[in-house]
Design a protein around this nucleic acid. Structure first.
Ligand SMILES: NC(=O)c1ccc[n+]([C@@H]2O[C@H](COP(=O)([O-])OP(=O)(O)OC[C@H]3O[C@@H](n4cnc5c(N)ncnc54)[C@H](O)[C@@H]3O)[C@@H](O)[C@H]2O)c1
Ligand SMILES: NC(=O)c1ccc[n+]([C@@H]2O[C@H](COP(=O)([O-])OP(=O)(O)OC[C@H]3O[C@@H](n4cnc5c(N)ncnc54)[C@H](O)[C@@H]3O)[C@@H](O)[C@H]2O)c1
Lengths: 232, 232
DNA sequence: GCAGAAAAGTTATTTTTTTCACAAAACAAG
DNA sequence: CTTGTTTTGTGAAAAAAATAACTTTTCTGC
């Protein structure tokens, strides 16, 4: 597999590019991006693969491999220009940056998420919430306006929404997901503990709190020396 | 790597066993367990690797591979006895089952988690919550009693707690984590967007909502045909 | 009882991800 | 200007995970 500069120099469709980038690399790049942002805010000018690696508990080689995917070249000996590297990573995430997100299911979890994303703690904007509970529809909840789920298709169309956080009860999740896809949604962060059965051209990330808690309980109980470096 | 019956027949320490079981297999086994529980409740007696595979979007071979790790043998043609397989998976998770968990950081997210786990929606028990906010200490919040963070060590000792859900602000997370480890905690499900820097004999699962949302946004924007089968 | 199908179990192969190892570059000090 | 050190970039190797291919068992229908 040849990663070399495929983002910038060789003409490939975005689809092919994505296929070449390991999924875990995408996850790590997001973390690197966050770290670089921090460095910029702190006024740091340069950084090294080794720095980044230490920060995230991976090897320096891994970091350099990952950075190959974004096509920015550091300098021997003086490492990476923080600002330039950051910008290049932003370019890699060009389809992501600035895009808005909506949330479906304004329950306990949904409200926690809404307050977080409305509270200015994130650069990601959650621009609307949807529920089927008439008591919630029409109100502004945790800083976000709540619409009826039936209004979702219109909203998604008009606002070119690609991504949804799905916090509905397990029993409703599959039906809602089908509706989301019909409305043109391309990615779902699924908090409900059910696997969504959908056509293949949608990206689903199952974000299963209970399963992950059980996983921690297992490894905590088993006393292995393992430590998952990065959760992907 | 030879998986054969290592749980039951070959004498190995638990540590070695865990090292042989792929991490992702552990994650999938938890999902299979949940599915089998459902089948038992529905009165289904038998199931097949193919059934389970379809349910979770993996291959039947993968399922059989995973099940090798728990040491239960199905029967050709008639598949797996649901109850027996479930029991065998429980045996695999013997150190996990029945163990209790505590939560640190009773903020927006913490409260959502507390109401979920106190609301009888999970078989996992969150037996105490900890915070440093005097307004919260001493109260029962979302069905769970909240103690001062200073009382944590005692509680963890007395109640043999191994696992913690950490929902504190990013700025406090590292300090709290150090304290947790000193208190004897062996596993942390870390919701804060910082990597915890700790000694290696603790299992940390970084459960980074923002990073995962960005990942979905990336893949949603990039229109690849990819679908992550199971989030691990 | 036998042919055929269906399913588990297992070995081999492939694919994906990570690490190793080293060349090339760049800088610093003498 | 040369030597040594540090750091990137990358081919090659290794490790991990997933899949394919094959073997055996068991059941069904004839
Ligand atoms: N809260 C947690 O800590 C937690 C933990 C683990 C898993 N989960 C999962 O996350 C999901 C949400 O959990 P929660 O605690 O917020 O649940 P909740 O019951 O508090 O909220 C669910 C919300 O979805 C809405 N809803 C129901 N049907 C709908 C439909 N058809 N269309 C639109 N909205 C609909 C409800 O009105 C409600 O507002 C659940 O699937 C749950 O299993 C939550
Ligand atoms: N809420 C979300 O949807 C969301 C989304 C992404 C990430 N997160 C992360 O999850 C974590 C919790 O988020 P939140 O929205 O619940 O935050 P929050 O501010 O609402 O709650 C934090 C809680 O931690 C307590 N706390 C602070 N310092 C403490 C200490 N030293 N010891 C014990 N308790 C302490 C506070 O009193 C408060 O109750 C944060 O790290 C946040 O970045 C949350």
């Amino acid at each position: 597999m040849c990663y070399i500069c495929f983002v910038n120099k060789i003409t490939k469709t975005k689809r092919e590019v994505v296929a070449l980038v390991p999924k875990k690399t995408v996850a790590r790049l997001i973390l690197y991006k966050r770290f670089l942002k921090q460095l910029i805010d702190d006024g740091v000018k340069n950084t090294y693969s080794h720095d980044i690696a230490t920060k995230f508990g991976v090897t320096a080689t891994q970091v350099r491999r990952d950075l190959m995917c974004v096509g920015y070249h550091g300098a021997s000996r003086s490492g990476y220009d923080v600002k330039k590297l950051y910008d290049e990573i932003l370019r890699f995430f060009i389809n992501t940056e600035g895009k808005d997100v909506v949330l479906v299911g304004v329950g306990n979890l949904g409200r926690a998420l809404l307050s977080y994303f409305s509270g200015g703690k994130s650069h990601i904007r959650v621009v609307a919430a949807f529920d089927n509970d008439e008591h919630k529809v029409g109100r502004v909840i945790c800083g976000c306006r709540c619409y009826h789920i039936n209004e979702l298709k219109d909203f998604v169309d008009k606002n070119k929404i690609h991504t949804v956080m799905l916090c509905a009860p397990a029993t409703a999740a599959q039906d809602i997901a089908v509706q989301l896809i019909k409305s043109g949604v391309k990615g779902i962060l699924n908090f409900s503990p059910v696997r969504l059965n959908l056509s293949a051209d949608v990206y689903i990330e199952d974000f299963d709190i209970t399963m992950n808690l059980e996983k921690v309980m297992f490894f905590a109980g088993s006393n292995t020396g393992f430590e998952e470096k990065i959760n992907v």
